[in-house]
Amino acid sequence: MDNSNHAGPSYKSRFKKFILKIVLGVIVLCAILLWACSWTYSEGTRAGQLIKISKKGVVFKTNEGELNMGGLRMGNANDGLEGNLWQFSVLNEEVLEELKSAEGKRVKLSYKERYKTMPWQGNTNYFITKVEVIKP
Rank of each mutant, 00 (worst) to 15 (best):
T117K: 09
K100S: 04
E82D: 07
L85V: 11
G83Q: 11
L81C: 00
K116G: 13
E113Q: 15
P119C: 09
G80A: 01
N123T: 09
G80T: 02
G71F: 11
K112S: 10
E98C: 09
W86M: 13
A77D: 00
L96D: 01
N76S: 06
Y126K: 14
R106I: 07
S110R: 09
S89P: 06
Q87Y: 13
V90D: 09
G104E: 08
L72R: 10
R106S: 13
R106K: 15
T124I: 06
Q121M: 12
E93F: 03
N76D: 09
N84F: 13
K116I: 15
T124A: 09
G80D: 01
L109Y: 04
E103L: 08
V107E: 04
L109P: 11
T124S: 14
Y111I: 12
L81N: 04
L85D: 13
E93P: 09
N123H: 07
N123L: 08
N92H: 11
N125V: 14
S101F: 13
S110A: 11
V95F: 03
L72E: 12
G75W: 00
K116H: 15
L91E: 14
Y115V: 12
G80E: 00
A102E: 07
W120I: 07
M118K: 02
V95E: 07
K112N: 12
G83Y: 10
W120H: 01
K105C: 11
G71Q: 07
V95C: 11
E82G: 14
E97M: 15
F88K: 14
K108A: 04
L99I: 05
Y115Q: 03
E113S: 15
A77C: 02
F88D: 15
L109R: 11
T117L: 10
L72T: 10
K116L: 15
K108G: 01
V90I: 04
Y111G: 03
L96V: 06
R114C: 07
E98H: 07
V95Y: 01
E98A: 09
G71L: 03
K105E: 06
M118P: 03
E113Y: 15
L109T: 10
G75F: 00
E103C: 02
L91I: 05
K112R: 06
E98R: 08
K108T: 02
G104S: 03
Y126N: 14
L99N: 00
K105L: 11
E103R: 03
M118N: 06
N123P: 07
E97Y: 03
N92L: 09
N123W: 06
N92F: 10
V90W: 04
E98S: 11
M118V: 11
Y126H: 14
E113L: 14
S101R: 15
G83D: 07
E93N: 01
G83R: 10
E82V: 15
D79L: 14
L91C: 04
E94T: 09
L109C: 06
N78R: 00
E94C: 01
F88R: 14
E98Y: 06
N78E: 00
A77W: 00
G83V: 04
W86H: 11
N125A: 14
G71P: 05
W120A: 05
L109E: 10
L72C: 00
R106H: 13
E103S: 01
A77I: 01
Q87D: 12
E93L: 03
V90E: 10
S89N: 05
E103V: 04
E93A: 11
G104C: 05
S110G: 11
E98F: 02
E93R: 06
S110C: 07
K108Y: 02
S89G: 01
